[in-house]
Structures are given as C-alpha cells and as structure tokens.
C-alpha cells in the first residue's frame, strides 16, 4: 500500500513557513542625536517597512487572496498591529527581558522607559513570557500569525462566510499540527489560542499610544503607517 497522502492541512503550515518574510533591520539614523524622538522615529520607520512586508505575506496565506479586495483590506486594517507585535514577541523569545524590535534594535526596560514605551514593554513582555512557558515553535507562531489576521473581528467584512472558511482552515491546520506533534498535550492548540486576547489587548494599547504620538506631531511618520493607524481609530 502507498503511504497515506499528507493531509492538505499540514501543507498549510509548511506553506506558511515558506511564506515567512526575510528579516528587516531598523537601521537607526547615525547622524541623529540619541533621543526619545529618534527612537520613536526609528520604530515608526521600521513599522512602515514591515507593513509593506506584512501585506505581501498576507497574500501568501492560502485562501486570503480569494477574498474580495475590500475584505483583504479590512482584515489587514484590523490585525496589522497584532501581526507586528507577534513578530516582535517571537524574535524576543531567546532574550531575557528585552524586546527585539529588529535584530539591530533591541530595547530593555530602561530604554523603553526613556522612550515612553514602558507600558507597551510590560505588555509585550507578558506575551513573551507566555510563549516562553509554552516553548512555542516556529510552525505554531506562523500559524497563529495567520489566525490573528483571519480572526481580526473587523466590523466591515462583506463576505462573512468566506472569512469564516479561512478561519476554519487555519484553525484546523493548528489543531492538526498539534495532534501530530504534541500528542503529550491535547490542550496545546487551545492554550495557544488563549494567548490571542492578550495580543489583541496589547495591540490596542500600541495603536492608541502611536496615535497619540501622531497627534503630538513631533515624530515623522510614513504614509502607509499613518494610513493604517488612521484606519484603526
């Protein structure tokens, strides 16, 4: 007998692994004197470039591109900060009490305090600790990122059934992965999904914080970042 064919659901996880974007760097401007404004400018510029990458990545999620353009926009407008934060969290896993915004931009508690990002630092670190405890793997992280996008609870979805179909496919991919790879913990998929409320809460805080920075007008922000920030409030 031929070996049983690999389930297409496992294929989703391997596909998401391949679709993972290349690292991008913060590259702080060396000619600018160190200040909170410089740190925030660096982070907003990094976020703007990461957004371009996230939009390209989303198109590689199986099923995403079959949604209407309007629904693709709505999901991204709701979930982009969750996706950004989840990536920071995953990069920070090998570190101790530091947030890896980029490989060349790591912030500790003191740096976060000086930049006015202490609240955000504390929240993101709470997420890091949860995933450290779970020893989350790259396969799980890429699937969770896609789930965060599909499950972003946008109020503007036109074709709810198609978005539900995408959520179901990704949810099933996670469950399928866990039932093959983590037979020792039948509740692992649930544990991972239960981290999403804290991710949503943290992203909401981050959006509010960066929106108030935008209103103060001291930090230059690129157009895509501004566009996405405005879509959230």
């Amino acid at each position: 007998l031929p070996p049983p064919a690999k389930k297409p659901l496992t294929k989703i996880v391997s596909h998401l692994l391949v679709a993972e974007p290349e690292k991008i760097y913060a590259m702080p401007d060396p000619s600018m004197p160190e200040s909170d404004i410089k740190a925030l400018t660096t982070l907003c510029d990094l976020a703007d470039r990461e957004l371009v990458v996230i939009i390209g990545w989303a198109k590689h999620i199986p099923g995403f591109s079959s949604l209407s353009l309007g629904d693709q926009m709505s999901l991204l407008q709701s979930a982009w900060m969750e996706i950004l934060i989840l990536s920071i969290v995953f990069r920070s896993l090998p570190y101790e009490d530091e947030l890896v915004y980029a490989e060349d931009y790591v912030m500790d508690e003191e740096h976060s305090r000086l930049t006015g990002l202490l609240d955000l630092y504390v929240s993101i670190l709470q997420l890091v600790r949860k995933y450290k405890k779970l020893k989350v793997e790259k396969e799980e992280f890429v699937t969770l990122k896609a789930i965060a996008l599909a499950n972003s609870d946008s109020m503007h979805i036109e074709d709810v059934e198609s978005v539900q179909k995408l959520q179901d496919a990704l949810h099933e991919a996670l469950q399928d992965y866990e039932s093959c790879q983590h037979t020792e913990d039948p509740r692992r998929a649930g544990k991972l999904l239960m981290t999403l409320p804290l991710l949503r809460q943290t992203a909401t805080k981050a959006i509010q914080h960066f929106y108030s920075i935008k209103m103060q007008g001291k930090v230059p922000m690129h157009k895509l970042f501004l566009e996405m920030l405005e879509a959230k409030v």
């Binding site: 596909h15 371009v52 939009i55 390209g56 198109k59 590689h60 999620i61 199986p62 099923g63 995403f64 591109s65 079959s66 353009l69 309007g70 693709q72 926009m73 991204l76 407008q77 179909k165 496919a169 157009k223 895509l224 566009e227 996405m228 405005e230 879509a231």
Partner: peptide
C-alpha cells in the same frame, strides 16, 4: 478605498497568491 490608497495599491500588485 480612496482613504486607504497605499494598502489598496499594495494588495492589487499580485504576487502568486495561493488558494485553498
């Protein structure tokens, strides 16, 4: 959509989307 021009444009530039 007019308000979200860049997102709209980036999504329209297709790059081998995958369907279920």
């Amino acid at each position: 959509k007019e308000k979200h021009k860049i997102l709209h444009r980036l999504l329209q530039n297709s790059s081998s989307p995958v369907d279920l």
